[in-house]
Amino acid sequence: MSKKVVVETTINGEATEFLCEPRQSLLEVLRDELELTGSKEGCLTGDCGACTVIINGRPTCSCLVLGVEAQGKKIDTIEGLARPEGLHVLQRKFLEHAALQCGICTPGFLMSAKALLDRNPSPTEAEIRYALAGNLCRCTGYDKIVRAVIDAANTLSGARAA
């Protein structure tokens, strides 16, 4: 086991320092060291997307990133999505559309969808499905998830137009 390393990052807007072993993944650091257990583990091989966080604006499987690689990066996790004023529109739409059953995939989908809407505020259904194809959901058949994201995008663009 090699020595722990100090890593300086910004997590959900807060400057955050943590200690981690070089072999620990960012997901493990978030969950086990920082107690941010909202990011989930489904595979550890980059195939399910349950661990998705946004690193410097890009949706990323945190299981494929080492904790030490977070040095100097800006990381957004599910814990930072809601504001004190209320839920993010994606979170609201997921609830209204019943876009979750067991909910284990939900944090990952929300982060992937947020990264999509940040970069493309009015995606087509095909673009949404493409952007979410790295996230597996075994419960819903995706139908309600896709509808929720479409509705969230419409709500956001409606708010911008107004």
Binding site: R31, L36, T37, G38, S39, K40, E41, T77, I78, E79, L81, A82, L87, Q91, F94, L95, E96, A98, L100, G103, I104, T106, P107, L110
Partner: peptide
């Protein structure tokens, strides 16, 4: 709206591994 919904869209719901 489901009663456990907010917990599940905010990452607060505690699954076994949490």
């Amino acid at each position: 709206i489901r009663h456990d919904g907010v917990d599940k869209v905010t990452g607060r719901a505690r699954y076994g591994a949490d």
